[in-house]
């Protein structure tokens, strides 16, 4: 998978083995804070939060012997910019096949940026029940928050400019594991608004 149109590669932030080690460390932190995974669920935010949640759950199982439950949230219907983006985002569906009442739910996403995705995910999650506690795990925190939110488990924090983009690529979705720092190319003359195929984080 190449870089999306309009962006050029600046730096590879993580390769496959670095990404695995980072996830292992995050899983370890989760296991440490929640030694009883029976009432803990990892809920991934679509798209790339879902495979990350599955991997973290498998790693927690290695540490504790029991795997936390895994769910998926599609926040499309809760977006605050739904009426300003065209065309309609494609929905892949929410799947939380267990009650979250009284549970600890750890939301999982690939990149934490403005925080608006997490806001939507919190709203949606609360429509499913009343968790005892909600935490947030992200592979990369790139700053620029527009809401008062922070993550409990962070794979890597870095300072970025708004001209940059962080792209997480995963085996399950993209065929390869790596994290890239991209930079917007200098404004090109009236480039057609070609949608990059692999969906970048919009916010």
């Amino acid at each position: 998978m190449g870089t999306p149109a309009g962006f050029k590669l600046r730096q590879e932030l993580m390769d496959g083995s670095r990404l695995s080690r980072t996830l292992a460390r995050m899983a370890h932190e989760i296991a440490e804070r929640h030694p009883d995974p029976a009432r803990t669920a990892l809920v991934g935010i679509r798209s790339r939060g879902v495979p990350l949640a599955r991997r973290l759950a498998a790693l927690v199982k290695e540490a504790l012997g029991t795997a936390p439950k895994v769910g998926a949230l599609d926040i499309t219907l809760y977006r605050d910019d739904l009426t300003t983006i065209a065309p309609n985002p494609v929905m892949k569906g929410t799947d939380i096949p267990f009650s979250i009442d009284g549970w600890t739910v750890i939301l999982v996403d690939d990149v934490l940026f403005t925080g608006r995705t997490v806001r939507a995910a919190l709203d949606e999650l609360i429509d499913f029940g009343r968790p005892a506690r909600i935490e947030l795990a992200v592979l990369v925190d790139r700053g620029h928050r527009e809401l008062p939110l922070h993550a409990n488990y962070v794979g890597k924090s870095l300072t970025t400019s708004r001209q940059e983009d962080v792209q997480v690529q995963l085996q399950e979705e993209d065929g390869d594991d790596r994290v890239l720092l991209l930079e917007r190319e200098a404004a090109r003359p009236a480039a057609p608004a070609a949608k990059p195929k692999p969906k970048r984080k919009r916010r």
């Binding site: 809760y78 929905m91 892949k92 569906g93 929410t94 799947d95 429509d127 499913f128």
Partner: peptide, 16 residues
């Protein structure tokens, strides 16, 4: 098919 799941939620309402 993807929206149908909402009808089985405890709170059958989304703010869309």
């Amino acid at each position: 098919a993807s929206l149908k799941e909402i009808l089985d939620r405890p709170i059958k309402k989304v703010p869309t």
